[in-house]
Every structure is written in C-alpha cells, then in structure tokens.
Simulated scan of single mutants.
Amino acid sequence: MPAYWIATYVEVTDEAKLGRYAELALPAITAGGGRFLARGMPELTYEAGRATRTVVIEFESVEAARATHDSPAYQEALAALDGGAVRDLRVVPGA
C-alpha cells in the first residue's frame, strides 16, 4: 500500500540552510523510492488552511518512507537543515 510523506513548512528561519537541506534531501529521498507529487505554495487554502510551503512525496509503503527518513543520507540532510525551518512532517498510509 502506498504511503505519503507530507511536509508543511510552518516557518523558514534560514534560507541558506534550507537550500543545503534541499540539495542533500532530494537524492536521499529519490534513492529511497520517493516520488515527488507536489511542492510549493498552495494556490488555494480553505477552513484552517495556512499558506505554507507544502511537499507531498509518494513511497511504496510506510516502511519505505520510514527507511528513507532514517537513512544516513537523509539524516545528513536533516543535520544540514539544523534549525533552518520549522516543519510538520508526517507519513500517511494510502487508502
């Protein structure tokens, strides 16, 4: 069953750190089988929606998403981010 890694950026505090994170995270995520479905600012928000950068990545399973997150390559990306952003990251199983 597919799973979706959903990240919303509540606040970006350091663009340079975020840029370095992105350089390292992209190959780490794709190496783990992640496929980017959406990234950027929302065109529309409803109800309690916030206009925050959002990223949606599809994985073959929750386990694949977890393995990617816990991989040395992605952990290196997180270390580079080092407080450069406040994010909400969750993995949701597909229906």
Rank of each mutant, 00 (worst) to 15 (best):
T68S: 08
A7M: 12
T30D: 10
R53W: 13
A85V: 01
R39C: 05
P72E: 14
G84L: 00
R90Y: 03
G84F: 00
A67V: 02
A48F: 09
V10K: 14
L26Q: 07
G32Q: 07
V92I: 13
P42Y: 09
A85P: 06
A28I: 04
E47P: 00
A3D: 08
T68G: 07
E47Q: 12
M1K: 00
L24V: 04
M1I: 03
V92G: 08
A22W: 01
L37I: 11
E43W: 05
P72Y: 10
E76W: 00
G84V: 01
L89P: 05
A22N: 14
R50D: 14
G83E: 14
W5H: 13
T68F: 04
T45Q: 10
E60C: 02
R20D: 15
Y46H: 09
L26V: 13
G94F: 11
L24I: 05
L24H: 01
A79Y: 07
V56I: 15
I6N: 04
G40K: 02
P42A: 12
E43G: 13
P42M: 10
T45D: 09
F36R: 00
R53L: 14
A64T: 02
V92M: 09
D88W: 02
T68R: 03
G40D: 14
A65D: 09
T30M: 08
P93Q: 10
A67T: 06
V62H: 09
A85T: 02
E58Q: 15
L44F: 06
L89T: 14
V92W: 12
D14C: 01
M1R: 12
P42W: 09
Y74H: 13
A65H: 00
A85R: 02
